[in-house]
């Protein structure tokens, strides 16, 4: 359980990092906290010839307010900084409550937001959050720059994104949620800190008792994070009642097509989707 040989680089600027990625292309992997990549290298499941460690690149560790009311999260912002964020309103509280579920404390101290998105574990909390909120992912290479919506960023295959080998995820913009927006996060894992078997992230805009805009993202049920679009449709325009929630949860369970593994069969995961969506929506509508 020792990694295969690799070269290590610790660039001091984004440009230097991008130039290394350009030079080494497929051979290189970005190290952004290492909480998933390093174990994968120790198992020799990942064998990058070159590591580009962005731990010392300035500016990528900031959480910045953007107009109008959204935030941009730098690639190497630590999970712990998001758990204890000072972002105002429902967005701040959803980020905080989601952050609590990421790994254990030591993992949250070292692991990063951008690293989690680029790693794209289908059961990762941040990926579901990004998916729920239609995050905009800023990607740069030595020669170009682009912004990709979360829906296009995650490919529906585990650990796969649209990032090109020479691209670096530099930051992610999360849009503002209105002050009246209700948010919820529910997760089921075997132990505290484990990757989710199933998780649900919700944000629900209301006009009085009527639901005007519901977002539900699920983790652990597909190759990547997915939106429960049928469940959202059940909610949108409906009354904020327990019956609507139950119908939406049933729709979510119906529309997913999970695959089973040792921690839960496909059927068990589908069953959990209903429970997690119910619990997340209950929080959002409380």
């Amino acid at each position: 359980m020792k990694p295969a040989a690799f070269e290590y680089h610790a660039p001091r600027t984004v440009e230097e990092a991008l130039s290394l990625l350009h030079e080494h292309q497929d051979e290189a992997k970005v190290l952004a906290g290492g909480q998933s990549l390093v174990p994968a290298m120790n198992f020799r499941l990942a064998r990058p010839a070159v590591l580009v460690d962005i731990a010392h690149v300035p500016d990528l560790d900031r959480i910045e307010a953007t107009d109008p009311g959204g935030v941009t999260i730098g690639a190497r912002v630590r999970h712990l900084d998001l758990e204890h964020n000072t972002i105002a309103g429902p967005l701040g509280s959803l980020i905080a409550s989601t952050g609590r579920w990421v790994g254990h404390y030591p993992i949250r101290v070292r692991g990063t937001f951008g690293g989690s998105l680029a790693h794209a574990d289908p059961a990762a909390e941040w990926c579901a959050l990004a998916c729920a909120l239609d995050a905009e992912v800023h990607c740069r290479s030595a020669s170009s720059e682009r912004t990709v919506g979360a829906g296009d960023f995650f490919e529906q295959m585990a650990f796969t994104t649209c990032l090109e080998p020479d691209e670096l995820l530099v930051g992610v913009r999360l849009p503002r949620l209105s002050d009246s927006c209700g948010v919820g996060m529910a997760e089921f894992a075997r132990r505290w800190g484990d990757f989710a078997i199933v998780l649900a992230v919700t944000a629900v805009e209301r006009d009085g008792d009527s639901i005007t805009g519901a977002r539900i993202a699920l983790g652990g049920v597909a190759g990547g994070p997915v939106r429960a679009l049928n469940a959202e449709a059940v909610l949108n325009g409906g009354p904020a009642t327990a019956e609507t929630v139950a119908a939406a949860a049933a729709a979510a369970a119906d529309e997913v097509d999970p695959t089973g593994d040792i921690h839960g069969s496909a059927d068990y995961r589908r069953d959990l989707v209903r429970t997690m969506v119910t619990r997340a929506l209950d929080q959002a509508l409380a």
């Binding site: 089921f188 078997i197 327990a242 139950a246 069953d271």
Partner: peptide, 21 residues
Amino acid sequence: ATPARVRELIRRAQPTTTGGR
């Protein structure tokens, strides 16, 4: 007695269970 096993026993015993709250 993993959660999956326990839940399966509950579903078999209570086939109409809806889950949720």
